[in-house]
Amino acid sequence: MAEVAMTVNGAPVSAEVEGRTLLVEFLREGLGLTGTHVGCDTSQCGACVVQVNGMAVKSCTMFACEAEGAAVTTIEGMAGPDGTLGPIQAAFQEHHGLQCGFCTPGMVMSAASLLADVPKPSEAQVRTYLEGNLCRCTGYQNIVRAVMAASGQAVEERSQ
């Protein structure tokens, strides 16, 4: 066991963890932040993406101890303190970027990293950046639309 300290969504936290404790286990089981999902646990699906020092990482493929001293942001940190959705979350809702919602936390966190780097991405850039985030429901079309809208760019209305 080792002591680990980091900030999660701006708040300092510390705990005793095992060497093998994954960051996602620490977040979900240690802190009760169950917004971060585990889809595959084999580093493939991106449902568990969080930001560590602003960078998108798969929290199922990083040990909690490796986040010592880091600033971690999870999906819970994207909404306002009163629960108001952040701009990317709101765009996902507005543009039907989710169905079951399982992939959504990872999608939103990856999208946030992209938009921090490239504020006005092209559609192709959005698709390439989200390559590691798998969605079994939506067919991606509306996810891409939501990210484009969140970047402040006009998106075509859905035709029926």
């Binding site: 580093s43 991106g46 993406v49 960078m55 998108a56 990482v57 798969k58 493929t61 990083m62 990856s110 990293s113 992209l114 950046y129 390559e131 590691g132 985030n133």
Partner: peptide, 9 residues
């Protein structure tokens, strides 16, 4: 290589 999250680690 892989995807952005893999490349970040």
């Amino acid at each position: 290589i892989g995807d952005p999250a893999v490349r970040n680690r």
